[in-house]
Every structure is written in structure tokens, then in C-alpha cells.
Amino acid sequence: MAEKEGKEDYWSKLPWELKEEIVGYLSFFYKLKFRQVCRETRDMIDSKSLRIQDVRLSESGIKLACRKEIMVFRFRYQYDTFLPFLTYLFSVMMVNELEVTSSGRWLFEKVIQKLPRGIDSLRYNVAYYDDSEIPIYMNWELEDRMDPPDEEKTSLKWMKKLVINQFQKIFRTPILGESDPTNCMLWEAALDKTKEEYAVAIFDPFSPALNDLESSDFHPYFCNFGREYLMTIRGFNKMIVFHPENSKWMSIQVFPLEAFMPTAGPYIWQRRRFFEEKLKIETFDDVYDGMIEEEPSFEKSLRKMQAKKKEFYKDKIWYR
């Protein structure tokens, strides 16, 4: 580093290891400030990860909290300016808890291609039908059987698995009563079988309380989840729902949010007849060859699916 004329550059006198040690004593707030001093400090700080306790990302801005320090960056709709900064942050920071609000999800999806390894727990907020936000917590080690190898932990597919699993736990069971536990296994198996870019989620969108077949409405929890989450996330372009009339699993297309008019979003979820007519419907048999017999009994098919699943996971150590 060049020295100013006639003046001594104190910082450049120090060896690299000492500089690193000094930078190590700075809090994340001052690291970000110190990063702006010169090229060398910028390279040095970028080479190490930043430890931040809590991060909250919404459409309006990002809030970083570490011990007593809190930093808020307001985007003020200048997303083009802030996106590089967000990309930088997600590449270097190690976070205890990252909260992504329902409004900030599109930013999150835009910034990350792969889940950052440095995030211990992710809180994904899903908007409920009354626009209140319901958090979905995702810890990477939820249960014994949900502990995949490291390379799988950061994939978006894994994140979707967790989201749906948590969604089932949080929404379905407390709100609508005990759901079929094998339902989770079904979509898990489906996700495993499909490619990343063509992920499939399996849902039972009908409330168990509304067993009368005349009611063709989806429960609002499902509309919102579908509208707010599935349609805005990459990869979910197909979804399998349980058809109670003929006891068949059917797949429906999930379009990106832009494909709908603002008012048309919930409608498509509420009227089954609408998508039955308008959208291409595949039976579950098309997706899983030979898994369901010609006259399917739901229980029988589930048992068969469980056996298949056991076989599928037989040599996967992490699953046991």
C-alpha cells in the first residue's frame, strides 16, 4: 500500500496476521465500516465470515442484530442498489436466526441460489388468510430422521421439504385436527423422486372436518399457503392433491405468481371445478407407475407406498 506524502501509513506497517487479529476484535457493525476504509481492509473482511445473531429480511429493508448492536438498512424501493449488498451479506454472514417475512421472500429467493451454510435456523413467515404472519421455523436438525448429509442440507429442495413438514405441523394439525401422518411421507418420497427443477409437493388440501363432498372449497389455510408460498418459490410447478371423490391423487400445475391477475390468485384454489376443467390433470399413477392399483383403495396404496419408501431409504444412513 502506498504511503501518503510525508506521512506514515501505520496500518500497512502491520503484518497480515496482526491485521486479521485486530479485525477479529471488531464487532460486525465496525467490520462493515472498516471494510470501507481501503481495498486491503475490504479484502480482509470479505475473506472471513461475519457472525450476526438475528437477521430480519422484509421488502422494506434488512435488520441485522448482534448483541447490543442493531443495524437497519432501508431499501426505499431501490432494490437494484441493495441487491448486490444483500448478495454480499448472504455470502459472508453466519446467522443464528434468519427471519424472512412474507413480503421479503421474493428478495430472499432472488439473492440466494443455494441456502447459505451459515444459517442455523430459518424462520419463514407465511401470510394467513387474514394477512397476519405465521412463522415457520426451520432448524436444520429437526428430528433424527431429518438430518441429511451436509451437501443436501443447503439445497432448495431440502428447504421445501422442511417448509412443508413444518407447515403440516403448524397449520394442519392444530387447526384442522390430526392429519394422516403418511401424508408427509408421500410428499417426501415424491420430492426425493423428482428433479430439483421439477419438484412435486403432495397435499391434502381438504379439511378433514369438511368431509361432505358437496363442499368443493379449499380451506383458506391452503389457499394462502399455495398463493403465498408455493407459487412464489422456484421449482414448485407441479403439485399433487388428494381427490376425495374418486380417492385418487391428482397432480395440478402451479404457475408462478405473475401468471395470475391479482384477484384471480385465490379463486383458482377455491374452485376445484375450475382447475379440473382448465388445467391438465394427471392421475397419481402417471407419476408413480404401478403404485396404485386399478381400483385404488387409499389405505392399500399407502401401505404400498410405505413399503416402497422403506426400500428407497434402506441404504440411506441419515434417514434411520
Binding site: 502506498a2 500497512s12 481501503c38
Partner: peptide
């Protein structure tokens, strides 16, 4: 490290004579 605290990047640059 304490010397950095409470100072702007410009101030740090000036104090430590960093170009």
C-alpha cells in the same frame, strides 16, 4: 481495535494515514 470504534471510514483513514 478500540481506536476504530466510533469513527467513520474517513476518520480512520485520516488517523492511520491510510491512502
Amino acid at each position: 481495535a478500540m481506536m476504530v470504534k466510533g469513527k467513520s471510514p474517513e476518520e480512520i483513514r485520516e488517523i492511520w494515514m491510510i491512502p
